[in-house]
Write a protein that binds this DNA or RNA. Structure first.
Length: 467
RNA sequence: GCGCCGGUAGCUCAAUUGGCAGAGCAUUUGACUCUUAAUCAACAGGUUCCGGGUUCAAGUCCCGGCCGGCGCACCA
């Protein structure tokens, strides 16, 4: 059988359903359309046959009659999952189902595999993730979720553009993987005979564009971290990073909450949702609390980055956290916060004023040089975004990188490497700038009410099956 | 990486204390001129994830491996 190379398609299911809403039961419109899609159900009744066809917009019934339909017998032998193109009149059956009365039809692709149980679909995770194409046909929720992700991406882009940000693209192959603390994937360029690392963040490149005079830039792109896989972590994930010259971290917090709540409004029409059965509100403004305040409340005594390191370490050990010898008071405070507060932060909140020790790219706090002007937003017990007033001083930047190198020497596996090119870039002058990194997948999880990151990624990372 | 749970027909799932491996849907064949997961009848469909072991007998018990889900760790 030869399948055609094209089909003169001129109507979609959803548009037909709405534009022929007025058609009465048993009424024939007199209008002929060409529709195409996939057979989801097929019911033969002697000299009649009814099929449910789905296209990207929705579903419509195909009504075939021996007296009207060409090759009627062949039509009744079509399989669930076959793609068909159909020409016929728009009618409503006596039982009230809007249909295309099939006059001519052609097979556009024969399905040689089925799409699972027509009622239960496909539920096996392995099959769903390895063969998303089958999952998408079999499971309406999978289509809805990935569509939501697309809606989120569009809303984020449109809001960034509307705020005057320019979308840019920066290298994925890097001689040094920097901009975050994470282990990178390594690869090799043959012609250059050079090892490269896949980016773990686009941060340093974006700030170099600000140095170059693009005052507002953003990038939505894949980043790669060679770390554990979990329901909330995929080795490659999508990050939004934005940088605005002349802003500080408070300005960026305002932008972050407005962007996030705005995306929820754009996609869902509301900021008030249920996430995993529990009420959740995107509505701005979000509370702002310092890390030290939250940690102090949680442990019942005042702690801060100035609390003696040994005292903080003792509190961590009481809570079963193993304290690395390279950790200073700042890192200990952050660990204490994560151990006691992080998972209880349900509605969005900004946690602010991080220790300088764990923030090598952020600018020192105007009120306390041991802190930086940094925030992380948390929602449903997870980190959603991270931003700060950017460190603009090349001398301080070099000192921070050197501190990181010292930590590495003491056995800390995930530290930032010194990036001479970046320091050189800062020497040309980075104006006061605030930056933000936001996990698009995690935002999509919230909007789509999904608890596993794999549901919002079309093809999540899986271990290959070897025979 | 560690722990717990799971893997049976193309899909969704059963299988009692270890005792002949089953159903629905899909596929194949037939009936049926308004169906809606159509209905009815019939046929066919299996390396029970893989490899060992215990036993008269293993889907079931034991050991190892593979893949997945969840939790922990790492992290966003």
């Amino acid at each position: 059988m030869t399948v055609p190379y094209s089909f003169a398609h001129n109507a979609f299911a959803a548009a037909l359903q709405s534009s022929y809403d007025h058609l009465a039961d048993g009424e024939e419109s007199g209008d002929t359309v060409m529709v195409a899609g996939r057979l989801m159900l097929l019911r033969r009744q002697g000299k009649l046959a009814f099929a449910t066809m789905r296209d990207s917009s929705g579903e419509i019934q195909l009504f075939a009659l021996d007296a009207v339909t060409s090759d009627f017998e062949e039509f009744t032998k079509l399989h669930l999952g076959d793609w068909v193109g159909v020409g016929g009149e728009v009618v409503r059956t006596k039982r009230g189902e809007l249909s295309v009365k099939v006059a001519t039809w052609v097979t556009l692709a024969a399905a040689q595999r089925n799409f699972g149980d027509k009622w239960a679909g496909i539920s096996d995770f392995d099959l769903r993730y390895r063969h998303r194409e089958a999952d998408l046909w079999a499971n309406p929720m999978s289509r809805t979720t990935l569509k939501r992700r697309n809606d989120v991406m569009r809303a984020v882009r449109e809001r960034c553009w509307a705020a005057g940000f320019m979308e840019v693209e920066t290298p994925i192959l890097n001689a040094i993987a920097s901009g975050s603390d994470a282990r990178p994937f390594a690869t090799h360029h043959n012609a250059l005979d050079t090892d490269f690392f896949l980016r773990i963040a686009p941060e340093l490149w974006l700030k170099r564009l600000v140095v170059g005079g693009f005052e507002r830039v953003f990038e939505i792109g894949r980043v790669f971290r060679n770390e554990g896989v979990s329901p909330r972590h995929n080795p490659e994930f999508t990050m939004l990073e934005i940088y605005a010259a002349y802003w500080n971290y408070e300005d960026m917090m305002v932008f972050t909450e407005e962007l996030t709540a705005g995306v929820a409004m754009d996609v869902l029409g509301t900021t008030e949702i249920e996430y995993q059965g529990r009420p959740f509100s995107f509505a701005a403004p979000w509370p702002r609390r310092t890390m030290a305040e939250l940690a102090s409340e949680a442990v019942g005594t005042d702690v801060s980055v100035h609390t003696p390191r040994e005292q903080l370490a003792g509190m961590l050990e009481e809570r079963g956290v193993e304290v690395h010898r390279a950790w200073g008071a700042g890192r200990c405070l952050a660990e204490l916060f994560e151990a006691t507060c992080e998972t209880s932060l349900w509605n969005p909140i900004f946690v602010t004023d991080f220790p300088v020790e764990i923030s090598p790219l952020a600018r020192r706090h105007q009120g306390d040089p041991e802190l930086v002007e940094r925030f992380e937003s948390y929602a449903v017990g997870r980190e959603l975004s991270n931003g700060f007033s950017e460190l603009v001083d090349p001398l301080d930047q070099r000192a921070r990188f050197e501190d990181q190198a010292r930590l590495a020497a003491e056995g800390e596996p995930e530290t930032m490497h010194i990036d001479e090119d970046y320091i050189k870039a800062l020497e040309w002058g980075l104006p006061p700038t605030a930056g933000l990194g936001l996990g698009i997948d995690r935002l999509a999880m919230l909007v789509a009410d999904e608890s596993n990151i794999r549901e919002v990624i079309a093809f999540p990372t899986l271990k290959p099956v070897v025979d």
